[in-house]
Design a protein around this nucleic acid. Structure first.
Lengths: 340, 340
DNA sequence: CTGTTAGCGCATTCAA
DNA sequence: TTGAATGCGCTAACAG
């Protein structure tokens, strides 16, 4: 029964001293080693409780050479519901495996992404899930990170051989445009993303595929790229709707574009139909109907974590990088109607 | 110039061997110690680059006795935009101070909260921000965590003396109800939260205060508590609207209740006005007008992180726990109108 | 300016 | 069944 400096976090030695045993007995007891006699075990646990001792996982990890038990998660914008659900998915699967998640927000800045990945590698995370901000993925190559497992989410790797989880951007876009065509629309305006982004290219490709499959022409005048905010999308949509021969429907390639397009349609009183990629949660409360391409965002995170955990666990990693595609669903929102 | 086992993460010794210097020189170089000659520095850095060496922050922290550089963040539901913005706020301030954030999601389960806090304490995080799931906060007491700083967000501590950041639930509710009163409403239905929750109690209190200040009676028949999902809220709202002398307006105490109330009003074609606590982002696209109590959710996270970082930095902690209240704004959403 | 010794908190390996 | 030495990767504190 010895005392201890106040305010200091107790160590195993403190517990050992308190219980009048060797540190090893404390260590074994806490590890659940069966070779500890019940009396010793009880004495140690009493001291542990008395001192409110908590084993230092950092020091433990250092000695065992085992991992930190941390997964890194680097996203572009955590406040975007998409990424927060993705984060929740990752956290859930990590927790089941006794791991925690360290988050980093890049704000779309590649330099910051580089710096975050570097920092996490220094913290010896067991693996990293990244939603890449740009197209240069060189700093994400496990080869340059001593084999640290990396999984990309939302965008496929360029120049890297790493696992990846993406949404079926092509298929989702195609089905949305096909649905508009099925409703009789023959001139459909497209509010796209930057063509340099993989996601943007795929969604455009899906849109065009649906048109071609319907025997409709792909008119350049109806295809627009939009800066990534709803205001810009609204301006572009207004321009499309003001044309001599305006489109009778719009397809917006992401949620911000969809919101902008919706506003343009509402303001001008245009009868144009609207479809968009990404869900808009309370769209059934909107004044006008809208179709959206939805997908399970949490599933993206869960699958990414799954791939990462496999890489971490496997002695011999899979020979080739794996690509998981998350399917999409076309969802129609119709305004609520009163009984009258 | 010595070689190294492949696939292994290099250590300082590896770098030292590669550069043919002592580990201390490597350590000093990486620390930026000015007492290293330029030639040595260059030689070391060359080896560092050649081996793609990255200092092990865990071992470093162990030796320096310094902190892990991690902040714990325990929330009830990360997929809720409120908490993801809070998380973003915390992450931002942490990053500025060179720290990372470890997240944990409780799903509202107090046992899981306990376990997460315990785990994070074992990982030697420098402090924890918690959105408590329940009213029992005993396990969050720094006294039981060897002085580990704790800051509560959204809900004030019960039985603890810790810093806290809350939203002005009382003031926000009062202003929302006051606005309805100013519009001429004299019978206002209230869709509240559980009375046991602090947030719920405060929002009810604010509502009642506004009524009393206007000389209006607080009628029990108009006050309801709702289970925490939109469907239940809708049912309760329908019941209120179906009364003999129905309320001419509803005030819902959180976003889910607001959505339920909105649906009830839309379905019945009721002319009742609607106000609610918590923002509903795209409410200007809704068919009917709505007022909401908004607040800067990111600010909640930033202030919480601020308080926590102060506690971590200060040798002598503030004598008393501090309470920060984040103000609210009443925001009116009006449906978009076409030019016609 | 550079190297040596020692130890952070813990767990493996060996001895008793 | 328990304890003593040794070292994980890194850096204070001291030599030189």
């Amino acid at each position: 029964m010895s005392s201890m400096a106040p305010g200091r976090t107790p160590t195993m030695r403190d517990v050992a001293a308190h219980a009048a045993v060797s540190p090893m007995t404390v260590s074994r007891t806490l590890r659940g080693d069966p070779r500890v006699s019940p009396e010793m075990r009880a004495r140690v646990l009493a001291s542990v409780e008395a001192l409110r001792y908590r084993r230092n996982d950092l020091a433990r990890g250092l000695r065992t050479g085992r991992s930190s038990g941390l997964l890194g998660l680097v996203v572009t914008n955590l406040s975007n519901p998409f990424y927060s659900e993705l984060a929740l998915g990752v956290e859930g699967l990590a927790s089941v495996n006794g791991m925690r998640v360290v988050i980093g927000n890049t704000g779309g800045d590649v330099d910051r992404e580089r710096q975050l990945v570097d920092d996490m590698a220094s913290r010896r995370v067991d693996g990293i899930i990244v939603v890449p901000a740009g197209n240069d993925h060189a700093h994400l190559d496990p080869a340059g990170l001593h084999g640290l497992p990396v999984v990309l989410a939302t965008r496929p790797p360029t120049g890297l051989d790493v696992d990846c989880v993406v949404v079926d951007d092509f298929g989702g876009s195609r089905s949305a445009t096909a649905a508009l065509v099925a409703q009789g629309h023959r001139r459909i305006g497209f509010l796209g993303l930057g063509r340099s982004l993989w996601t943007g290219a795929e969604r455009l490709r899906g849109h065009c595929a649906a048109l071609e499959e319907a025997g409709l022409p792909v008119e350049d005048a109806l295809l627009r790229s939009v800066a990534p905010d709803a205001g810009a999308a609204e301006a572009v949509a207004l321009e499309l709707l003001a044309a001599d021969d305006p489109p009778t429907a719009l397809f917006a390639a992401n949620n911000r574009n969809t919101v902008g397009a919706y506003r343009a349609i509402a303001e001008t009183g245009s009868p144009a139909a609207l479809a968009g990629f990404d869900d808009l949660p309370l769209a059934d409360l909107f004044a006008a109907p809208i179709s959206v391409v939805t997908y399970d965002t949490g599933e993206v995170g869960r699958r990414a974590a799954e791939l990462l955990l496999e890489r971490i666990a496997d002695e011999e990693p899979p020979a080739h990088a794996r690509l998981v595609t998350i399917g999409t669903t076309l969802k129609r929102y119709r305004p609520l109607r009163g009984p009258g």
